[in-house]
């Protein structure tokens, strides 16, 4: 997808792309910090995932609409401002109108400003594509991020806390290690290795392994 001269991919393909073949966490290795910090439980992963999905879609739409007027030399600062505006606006609106929900998710919203995944989708996709494909790309990436966080959260919650979605499975904490930050790194690495191996098996060994580390 170099420029708009190419026909943009369809909605289904963009969704598949974001969730599976270019999964932000397991394939692009983006936004690993929150993926480690927040994924001690499935519920945490889910809430952060929803928040990212919302900010991603809104920011991508804004950039897709405004891409004609953004000067290319200052596009990155402008993207940052757009993301920050959406995050702050959502933060304030939730705090005002749904304080009970805000008490649960307020922490997650503020984290999102610095997520690499959002700005990278703006730069790679929304700034070069029309509104509709940008929307589907944002939805796919947001869902992919959410699902990845929930998978990591599931592994860590079951092993580290002995529960799943808050439902107690074991009375004791089976492997406390996985609830700790170090366990988060290992969980992501193990899952990434697993998905690479799976893909290699399915595609007959031609797939490239996930690209390494991008902070944020």
């Amino acid at each position: 997808m170099s420029e708009t001269t190419e026909r943009p991919p369809g909605a289904l393909q963009l969704l598949f792309n974001g969730i599976v073949s270019e999964n932000p966490v397991f394939r692009l290795a983006l936004s690993l910090c929150p993926a480690v910090a927040v994924t001690t439980t499935v519920a945490n992963g889910f809430i952060l995932g929803v928040a990212v999905l919302a900010v991603q879609v809104l920011s991508s739409l804004t950039v897709a609409i405004a891409r004609g007027v953004i000067h290319p030399r200052v596009r990155i600062p402008v993207y940052t401002i757009i993301i920050a505006v959406w995050v702050s606006a959502i933060d304030m609106a939730l705090a005002a109108f749904v304080p009970a929900l805000y008490a649960q998710v307020g922490l997650y919203i503020k984290l999102i400003v610095a997520f690499a995944i959002i700005i990278s989708r703006l730069e790679v996709f929304a700034s070069r594509q029309p509104l509709v494909p940008s929307f589907w790309d944002a939805v796919g990436m947001g869902l992919g991020f959410m699902i990845a966080l929930m998978v990591i959260g599931a592994l860590r919650e079951v092993l580290g806390a002995g529960s799943f979605f808050g439902i107690v499975l074991f009375k004791t904490k089976p492997l406390l290690f996985f609830a700790l930050p170090a366990g988060g790194f290992f969980s992501i690495a193990l899952l990434m290795a697993f998905f690479n191996a799976l893909e290699r098996k399915l595609t007959g060994g031609t797939a490239k392994p996930a690209a390494g580390g991008h902070h944020g």
């Binding site: 007027v69 953004i70 000067h71 200052v74 600062p77 402008v78 401002i81 757009i82 920050a84 505006v85 702050s88 606006a89």
Partner: peptide, 13 residues
Amino acid sequence: NLVLVCAVSAIVL
């Protein structure tokens, strides 16, 4: 361009 973006953002916020 930057002034415009910042002004719009400030108004929205």
